[in-house]
Structure formats: C-alpha cells, structure tokens
Design a binder for these strands. Structure first.
Lengths: 142, 142
DNA sequence: GTGTGTGCAAAAGGTTTGCAAGAAA
DNA sequence: TTTCTTGCAAACCTTTTGCACACAC
C-alpha cells in the first residue's frame, strides 16, 4: 500500500475517480516490478486472499475494462473460455503452455519482430499478435 | 452431395462412423474449393438454410471438435466470446477485421514466416499463430 | 447536489454434460 | 448385441446488465 498517491493521480488524469476499489486493484496490478498475466477469476482470487475482502465481480470487470481502455492493461488472444490480461503493455509476444494454461512473455531473443508487408486496403493495423503454443513432447493426441 | 463416398471413407479411416449428420457437415465444410472461416453458430445456420433440416447443437459441437482433433479443422485464437474455425489447415495467418468481426487469410505476400529463435526448455512448439487486428481509421477510442 | 461508481442478483451467450433413444458395426 | 452417436434439456462458466444505493467532487 505504498503508491496510493501515485495511483490516485494516475486515475484522476485518466478521468477515472480514484475509488477505494480501483486503488486496491491498482495496488495489486501495478505495485510489483514484475509484470504478470491474469484472468478475471485470478484477479478476484488475489483480491480475496491478499486483501481479505471482496470486490464485487461486476466492479472487477468494470475496472479491468476501464484500465484496458486507458491502456494500462492489454488483453491477450488465446483460444480459451476466458480472457487473459497482461500488465505489460509494451509490444511483446507470448508463449502459451498448453500443459499448464500458463502464459510466458516472449522477448526479442525468442522471436524477430513481425513486418506486415501488405495490409488490407482502407484498414489500419491495430496490433500484431503472436502466440506460440507449446506443450511437453509426450502429448496425448486424439 | 457429390463426394459422399469420399467422406465416408475419410471418416472411417479416422475411426469416426460416417453418420448422416457427419456426412452433411463434411459436405458443407469440404465440398467447396475455397476454404472458409466459421463459428459454430454460422455452421448451424448454414446447415438449417442449405439442408432445410436441423442437426442438434450438441452434435454440431461434437462433430466440429472431432474434426479438429483429427486435423480436418483448425481453431483460430481471437479474443472473442465465440470460437472460430478454419477449413484451411495449412500453416497460415490471419487478419481480423474488428469492424466486421471477419477473418481474412493472410498469405506469404503479407507476412514473412515467423522463426522462433529460442523455445521454452523441455517443451515442443505446437503452433505459431499470428493475428493482425485491423480496423478502419476513423475508430472511436475510449 | 450531480454525476460516477459499486454491488447484487438476474440474464445472457457460448459451450458442455448426462442420459435415454437410435444408428452403425 | 455391442459400441458409438444423436438429441434434448439442463447445467455450467464467463461476462454483461439493470437498478438502487453509496461515494467522489
């Protein structure tokens, strides 16, 4: 609970009122140096465990989407029943470990940046997302 | 309804019984030269319109997943409430038009093939998926 | 005070499941 | 006749919505 003033300011700058709930979520998401990946469900659990209190599901959804809209979070495309979010909003790609359903950041050492040589006429490129699916070798097929 | 024997054989080879429902779905998915993208909902509608009959939702899901497991269909990763499938199972990437929620195939003219320089230790790369999100320029943000 | 944000419960939407009846081998 | 498949409805899960109350400014 260290950067409360910082978060308060950041939220206000974005036109978001610094409510208790939003500040707590900020604290969970942005107070560690390490970036991380999470689902809404993960986040809800972390809130309950770390803060020993409940923030309503609707509010968690609202907040996460607000933060995404403001560019503080990125959503990651995976074929999954649920949405994954990333506190690292810089351009980078991901490994997805199918054994554990875990996302792993992928840096420049792992993959060259992708150049789109021809785009669809009349459209603008919003993002280029790469997902490298991995699994252990001894995979059951079928 | 031309390739029924072909489909029957193909299904049998895969250990799938060539039922009436599966053959009809084969006919819809594989009898055109063009590959295409669809959601379960799309497919269900096509079945109803083209065949003037209903195949139960559960069966459509079963069949699509069976075909995916056998490698006759690919699932495409998009952040979406629904799953998209592709009858083109060769390695290729996609544009996703956010204005229309439409998938467009992406060939070698549009993007270089991706080389993964370093993989996660102990894991095997299952696939490398690229999704290029596009939208028209005059996009409302926030 | 006014406008936002929160919380709850209900609803929605896509997908899965259990199970009895039906078809293929 | 044994095994796989279908179809239906119910269940499930994630996400969204409506609305009254509470909070921020």
């Amino acid at each position: 609970m260290s950067n409360l003033n910082l978060y308060t300011e950041k939220l206000r700058e974005s036109g978001l009122r610094p409510t208790r709930q939003r500040l707590k979520i900020c604290d969970i998401l942005f107070s560690t140096e390490k970036t991380f990946h999470f689902t809404i469900n993960d986040l809800t659990k972390i809130i309950e465990e770390k803060l020993n209190e409940k923030i309503s599901l609707a509010t968690v959804y609202n907040t996460v989407h607000a933060f995404k809209r403001k560019g503080y979070l990125k959503e990651i495309s995976i074929n999954s029943d649920k949405s994954y979010f990333d506190t690292n909003t810089t351009e980078h790609q991901h490994f997805f470990d199918e054994d554990t359903s875990e996302l792993i950041d992928c840096g420049e050492n792992e993959i060259d940046s992708i150049k789109v040589k021809n785009n669809i006429t009349g459209k603008k490129i919003k993002s280029v997302e790469v997902l490298i699916r991995v699994a252990s070798d001894n995979q059951t097929q079928n």
